[in-house]
Write a protein that binds this DNA or RNA. Structure first.
Length: 156
DNA sequence: GCCAACGTTGGC
DNA sequence: GCCAACGTTGGC
């Protein structure tokens, strides 16, 4: 099983929106970065766990956990001219962009702020903390996973 | 709202 | 294939 951290702007789609979705399942779409596309398509597996990270907000940080709910599949929003993520260079014969379904697992009583994560020696090397990182999904090692959970006060 | 950092685009 | 210009991300 792999671990991930996935960013979203809560003004657009936050963990409360995921929890409120039917069965707590929602499509994680709109990825338009090749590195992130490759992670979704080639390395994510159903059952993988992911931190839900709120970005571009007053206190950015990890707010809970979700589960990868299925295999990656072509991102339908790339085919839709009405969609803000429409990409005319992607078509169903040769889809350029992929998405996955994610399932709500838990929302934590408190946020693990980016500021705190920067102070944790165990999180050195987490790509999220690297200067200039702009990937909306990054891999997390098992020890980093445990460290962030412990910072949230969750059991190991 | 600012701006650093980065990815992408397109002219050459 | 280089690289300047541009757009976007996202912390602050």
């Amino acid at each position: 099983m792999n671990y991930w951290l996935m960013k979203s702007e809560p003004d657009c789609f936050g963990i409360d929106d995921l929890e409120a979705a039917p069965d707590g399942v929602e499509m994680w779409d709109g990825v338009r970065n090749y590195q992130v596309r490759n992670m979704i398509r080639d390395h994510m597996r159903p059952g993988d766990r992911a931190f839900f990270y709120h970005s571009n907000t007053k206190t950015p940080g990890v707010v809970g956990v979700m589960e990868i709910a299925g295999e990656a599949y072509p991102d339908p929003t790339a085919f839709d001219p009405e969609d803000e993520h429409y990409d005319p260079k992607s078509d169903s014969d040769r889809p350029r962009w992929y998405c996955v379904d994610v399932r709500f697992v838990e929302k934590w009583p408190r946020i693990v702020a980016l500021q705190e994560m920067r102070r944790s020696p165990r999180l050195e090397g987490l790509p999220l903390l690297r200067k200039g990182n702009r990937l909306s999904i990054v891999p997390v090692t098992p020890d980093q996973w445990a460290a962030i959970r412990e910072m949230a006060g969750e059991a190991k």
